[in-house]
Design a protein around this nucleic acid. Structure first.
Lengths: 204, 204, 204, 204
DNA sequence: AATGAATGAGTGTTCATTCAT
DNA sequence: GATGAATGAACACTCATTCAT
């Protein structure tokens, strides 16, 4: 995942992620972004053809990197449990290490033009597939017990992505702690109640 | 939760929820909202003093109703498991029955003015407390086994609220099915691996 | 100068004068005026056909009354000095007793439509004529000594009308005191230096 | 009183003075002002942050320049009569040479925001002080005879400022003539009747 | 006489974008 | 690579005015 990029372009992208996260894409003005990037409004257009392109660039980059990183992490694991653990760990770590970009990627999909929207949704589905395939593998192996793969994938990703919205660096938990809490929670969930023990009180 | 309101005001609020969800608060214009509401741009201001007030009104209403509804549902349940189930059920049902408002309430907090932001965050915390108290009750009863109440509450709410983002009416699952999937998943999570059985393969 | 008028109409006119004076005609809204008059915005139109008509009505009334009152006061005075004194006295008294209307009449001529503008300017000229005729009489009598009747009339009226801009009811001077100060000042002015004494030091 | 200013900014200020004088501040639209300035509506905001700022800028500039110019003119005069003459002369000349700005400065104080209002009123008081101090000097010297310094100052300034409202370039009098008429009038006024001669017929 | 609800034309202002320099 | 100055289309919002009730 090598990135060669004009340093100013990189700065703009970084500042854009920060501003878009805090104020939203719509509410961020190009002059504001320029000022944060150390240049004047019009100069942005030397590096990007439009505000939309900045958003697309950012989303594309972060999703590609996320897909690549998670795939790398999962590649050599031998069973579904280990794969799931690595995927969750990498997902959360990436989100915490890239709070700005990941929050924007999660919350500004609406702001993409139709064409860009299709393109990014495609990537997102590709990413979700990594997780749903792990779950399906666990089901085949007989170790996971859940009824709805797709919904469960959504649920897992939503709760893990959600970390970006409450995480504060000065909090008492470090990243590893957070990963543990989430994995334990999810692991129990995918193992499933029925598959675990029969004496658990069911309702009604 | 009775609401007496000028019918046109109600229409505006409903259309605003729909538009804000699809296009975002920022990207929705008042003329657009007016057109959807069957009046001309300026007439909105007979019913609301500003665009911001529409957003606030909507968020305030939906959060108040949600708090009220979940509290009512949980009130007479006798143990933490039943309470959690009812809370999850009611949360998901309310979100599915009010997709527009709940997505807006979840995604447009940034668009509130400082004062309104404080006000709504307050309400949100009040709502989260309902869930964290149930979890704490379960911990005291010795039936739940989790380490981080606060984070777990966030995780649960984020995944359940997430339903609003993927739910489609024409999907194969009805609301009850969805509630079951989510409850089973969460129930396993809060019971905790350690409390369930010891032969589950732990990693590392 | 009898005025029969619907009481509400009179109230509107009075409140309009007050608001127009404080905020200007342009900056005063009809809703505001209506509220001050104890009715709702649209109801103004039962009494007046437009905002402009309110302004015209007010100006017309105050100028007519002023012309009438000053003419009455001057009528039976036998010489130009007494006439001038009465005119100044009545002008200042009327302005102090009708601060709102007179300030508006003085400052909002620009806000009249072309036709109304012509109409009011006509009245104003008629009023100025009262003063310039007194001065001309004094010149003929040989008691006044000034070179420019027209300019002097303007100067006198501007300084006397100016009272409306600084007068405060709780001030230390009563109306009679103010009239004395102004009359003394103007009287000396119209008597003229040359006609008074020759030993006054002239410059250059 | 050197002013370095972007030429377009200077143009806007000049056109604004002209339009504000003719139509009032409130009734002048930014698009109108822009058109008169040779640019499009939005471009005004490159030079000024708001319409209000244009008004403030104009008033501040004209009052500062007036204060400076009158103070300069009066500085080296040796007695109160000469000082008063110079002050009146400079005031009238400045007003005639800057009709637009001075009329606006006189008539649009109401249109200033609270803070700006305070600021300009401060300056105005500073200007009035120049005149009242001259009068007080004349009183101490025993050459002026008036009872109310403050009111007399108001009266003098109001009549002199009033020139802006009736002055027309094509009139028969040149600036020097006008100054003479006003000075003679005011000079007689401040010398006072009592101090001049005793055989002047007093009333009542 | 008065009002609730609406209109439509306009207001100041914003902002992504352009482009000559 | 960057900027100063401008544009034009849009925006939230205002307000005199209308009119059925």
């Amino acid at each position: 995942m090598v990135m060669t990029m004009h340093p100013r372009k990189r700065i703009i992208l970084k500042e854009a992620a920060s501003l878009f996260r805090i104020k939203s894409f719509e509410a961020t003005t190009l002059r504001e972004l320029a000022e944060h990037s150390g240049i004047k409004g019009g100069s942005i257009y030397y590096h990007f053809s439009s505000k939309q392109e900045i958003l697309l660039n950012m989303m594309d980059f972060s999703m590609s990197e996320l897909i690549f990183t998670v795939k790398e992490a999962v590649k050599n694991k031998k069973n579904s449990i280990e794969k799931l653990r690595e995927a969750i760990k990498t997902h959360i770590e990436y989100h915490i290490n890239n709070l700005d970009m990941t929050v924007v990627a999660d919350s500004e999909i609406r702001s993409l033009t139709e064409e860009n929207h299709r393109f990014i949704i495609q990537k997102r589905k590709k990413y979700e597939k990594i997780f749903s395939e792990i779950i399906e593998e666990g089901l085949r192996e007989g170790v996971f017990h859940i009824k709805e793969t797709k919904i469960t994938t959504f649920a897992i990703l939503q709760m893990c992505t959600g970390v970006s919205y409450w995480y504060k660096e000065q909090g008492s938990l470090n990243v590893q702690d957070i990963v543990d809490v989430y994995f334990d929670f999810i692991y129990a969930g995918v193992l499933g109640l029925c598959g675990i023990r029969t004496d658990i009180p069911r309702l009604e």
